[in-house]
Amino acid sequence: MSVHLQLIAAEFRRQSTYRLALAAGVFTNGIFGLIRAGVLLAAVAGAGGEAGGYDARTAILYVLWGQALLGAIPMWGWNEVASRVRTGEIAVDLARPIDLQVYWWFRDLGRAAMQFLGRGLPILILGSVVLRVPPPTDPLVWLAGALGLILGLAVNFLGRYALNLISFWTIEMQGFQILYMVVVSLLTGFTVPIHLFPGWLKTIAEWSPFPSMYQYPVDLISGRTTGVDVLPIIGIQLAWLLVLLVGTRVMTHFGTRRLVIQGG
């Protein structure tokens, strides 16, 4: 097996050892899902049955997929690289014949896969039954959704990774982490779909990479965006993927150089 598959498989198994945490995630994300479903249904009802292009059914789908993806595409909290810089364990990573970003990216794929199977799928199944929303039947929706989700995860990883890389320059990471968390939970469209944002806020969101992590993939998989409209969405995701890829490569290069010159 190649090193890439090995890393995916290893992280997948590592995640699977935390069974109780996975079960806790299903339970808690599920409860929050029920609360959020009520909130969005009330908003749609308050607006006369349709708000920002959401009706009752699509609103529920939005919440359902959101809660299901929370484990795989985390909105907050991943500081593994930053904490390894703080403890000096990054030395172990640098003394390996593998690129730092490649190493963590493939591990992240394994993590996401386990989180989706262990946390996301049970929520999707239970949620579809409890809230009575059948899964999409159009194979094109599944295809576009799967593509959107994979791109969303990649953009999301690169965002988190870039945040972690800041620790190569400063030990005061807390401010950046808080800022990232605040911005991400709003602008990804996780808290409220960006289609409901007032104009100015929507413009800010649309010019950021954040909806590509979350709002757009959910739009695709829930069948809100279909037909030719899928293409520009995928295009935007790809564009951000490219921008962040270049950005993180530059950061990795200069950050590593700084680390070996400064001595961590």
Partner: peptide, 20 residues
């Protein structure tokens, strides 16, 4: 500092390092 995978059986760390 460890280069082993904390949560996995020792055997798996060897496999991964071999691949790396």
């Amino acid at each position: 500092r460890t280069q082993l995978w904390w949560d996995l059986p020792l055997r798996e760390s060897f496999t991964i390092l071999g691949a790396i």
